[in-house]
Design a protein around this nucleic acid. Structure first.
Lengths: 336, 336
DNA sequence: CTGAAAGCGCTTACAG
DNA sequence: CTGAAAGCGCTTACAG
């Protein structure tokens, strides 16, 4: 039989109200009775039932998190950031994925209606932004971790510097003497694709080296598209001395295709990715890439949501955490 | 103002009891009243508050999951397996990590005491098995996803075939003509290390090729240890034509060291890992490895726990899901 | 077949 | 400074 507030009250010879007050530090209480109650709580190892507290207070002290899938290479970092912050503030994290598609969203919707959590952190599963916006409009506190730079402006969000990150990659390539990069983009419907393209192109244009259409390949963030882009370019005789891929997975595909074609990395072709997934550090050679501050983004999103619970209004413009360029062997030969 | 069971009752002109009954399908009710109540529920979009249901029923319909860290390369697969099963059964998943060490365990303990969930899935953070066992003894339903083959026998668990998986790797190496493998183990305190060693050694011993001590390197599952093992072996003139690493990370280290030393993979040295992390498919060459059925393990653990909630006793011997060998370029040259 | 009432374990006005 | 009572939104004996 689990012990309840009534047990504590009886043993300390006070009312449940008083126990509740020492528990929550509300109201003036005689220090000696408070001490006595605390002693009993300690002695009995009493911890208030979260179910009961939740019902009485109308909040669960739980935050929901919706992500597309847990098997994406970088999603763990984001969640870890959020979990660490929530844990510190004694909140729980209720995890939802969209792994089973429509059915997943239906189950998720049911949990929203059942008020299973006080607020929501979300990495938007594609095509659900309208639904998320609706929830937000109906009063559910929501913070979006906007990995695709889709910010509608309506939902509070945290993102990174896609434009400047790509610019940093471009400057690095120029610095090491590359003049004709092949660009493998993400899907064109994503804001991050536009930003990365623009940021990268601007730097090369400024250097008097505008990137022609034949050196831009519309990709889709898969390994396969990276390989395909390189093969096609090689087959059609397009000259290039570098590859800038909009994510690390397509950079991996590009590297494989280059090696299969006998090109040396980085001597013949330098390769740069975007994301800095764990694999990036372990390719042969290791992949230079634009590091997304994923953990920090998760932390920031969680902090924003918790601050809102304390009364801070949700910010009306995105929180932006800078990306940073990481130099590895795919752009610079190892120095002996 | 969220709508409650009282609203539904009033509108349908019945008691809350009756509404509750149609909600839960309990008791005999007149089909016409039931239909009327259902119509009102539909009309109002009513969903019972999970907080209130939880308090009244004494269960939360939430399962806790404790994992060491979300940034380990294979942990996402396990969680995804669990989430998918829980979602199907309309359970929620409350996620805890041990990322912040002692403090994390303290917060986790508080949530256990607060009865925030009905049962626990755990990938044991090292050194916490006694604590988990204590929770189990005190009545918390627990299922362990036993990645390290530590099974104490006390806690219900699901694991894989470490012994046979390693055996399969050994048979593969023999089949492709390798006779002197270098073995890079995991920490010796782990059951999986013993099993993988035994399973691998037995096959080579049976073939009349026992593995001498000089070709066994005590590793620790890091990339660094894999590189170190190979370098040391090369430096001291130990001959080997294959590497069997007890996990993929150390296999990556071994591959890097081999390439740095100018050895060709797989022509000079074949390399096999264990785990089949996402990176394994994208190394150069791709890594042959023993695939751990991580997602299936997560699913099985979740199903076992849910079955227990329905009255099925927790199994007293581990559920074992077979590992399988995956052949890639690090052991077999690509056929043109 | 249906409902009034008690109970789940807390919190929070309201009194004193 | 402290307590009795109502309330959070459900479920579940118990009656009828």
């Amino acid at each position: 039989m689990p012990i309840t507030i009534a047990d504590v009250a009886a043993r300390a010879k006070v009312s449940k109200t008083t126990v509740s007050r020492v528990l929550n530090g509300k109201g003036e209480l005689d220090e000696s009775t408070a001490a006595r109650v605390r002693a009993v709580i300690e002695e009995l190892g009493y911890v208030p039932s979260s179910r009961a507290v939740g019902l009485a207070r109308g909040r669960t002290r739980v935050v929901g998190m919706l992500v597309p899938s847990l098997t994406w290479p970088w999603i763990g970092e984001v969640i870890q950031g959020a979990v660490d912050v929530l844990e510190t503030e004694r909140y729980g994290l209720l995890l939802f994925t969209c792994n089973r598609g429509e059915e997943s969203m239906r189950q998720f919707g049911a949990q929203v209606s059942a008020k299973s959590f006080d607020g929501l952190l979300v990495i938007e599963p594609e095509g659900t932004l309208d639904y998320i916006a609706t929830l937000h409009r109906r009063g559910l506190p929501v913070v979006l971790i906007d990995d695709r730079d889709q910010t509608s402006g309506e939902i509070p969000s945290v993102g990174t510097t896609n434009h400047d990150g790509a610019g940093a990659a471009a400057r690095h390539l120029l610095r090491i003497g590359r003049r004709s990069p092949l660009v493998i983009t993400g899907p064109e419907r994503f804001g991050c694709t536009l930003q990365r393209n623009a940021g990268f192109a601007a730097v090369f244009a400024d250097a008097g080296l505008p990137i022609p259409a034949e050196r831009t390949w519309l990709g889709d963030f898969t390994v396969a598209c990276g390989a395909e882009a390189v093969q096609t370019a090689l087959d059609s005789g397009v000259e290039f001395d570098a590859v800038f891929a909009h994510n690390d997975l397509s950079a991996l595909g590009a590297m494989q295709a280059l090696m299969d074609a006998g090109r040396r990395i980085p001597q013949d072709v330098a390769v740069v990715g975007f994301d800095d997934i764990p694999t990036a550090a372990h390719t042969q050679p290791p992949l230079s890439t634009v590091h997304q501050p994923l953990r920090e983004m998760g932390e920031a999103a969680a902090r924003t949501l918790l601050a809102h619970f304390e009364g801070t209004p949700l910010p009306n413009r995105p929180t932006v955490i800078p990306a940073s360029f990481v130099t590895r062997g795919s752009t610079v030969a190892p120095t002996e």
